[in-house]
Amino acid sequence: MTHCSRELMHEQWGIILDDDFIEAWQHGIVVLCSDGLKRRFYPIPMAYSADYKEK
């Protein structure tokens, strides 16, 4: 079960952190903000506070 939980969690995080996100993380995404200005944003995961089902 530990093996399955770990595999499942890694598999799901692999889906969440998809290619689009990796591209945005490395090269940023250009967003037209509501004030009419374009900015380039770099999303960076800075905190991960989560419980994990070990068993």
Binding site: H27, K38, R39, R40, I44, M46, A47, A50, D51
Partner: peptide, 26 residues
Amino acid sequence: ALQNSPPEPGCNLPRFVVALMFWSDV
């Protein structure tokens, strides 16, 4: 670090960090 890094080719838009914080529990 982002400001000191070379900009994307052909882009001089201002660059900013979006800090993501994840939280999860059952």
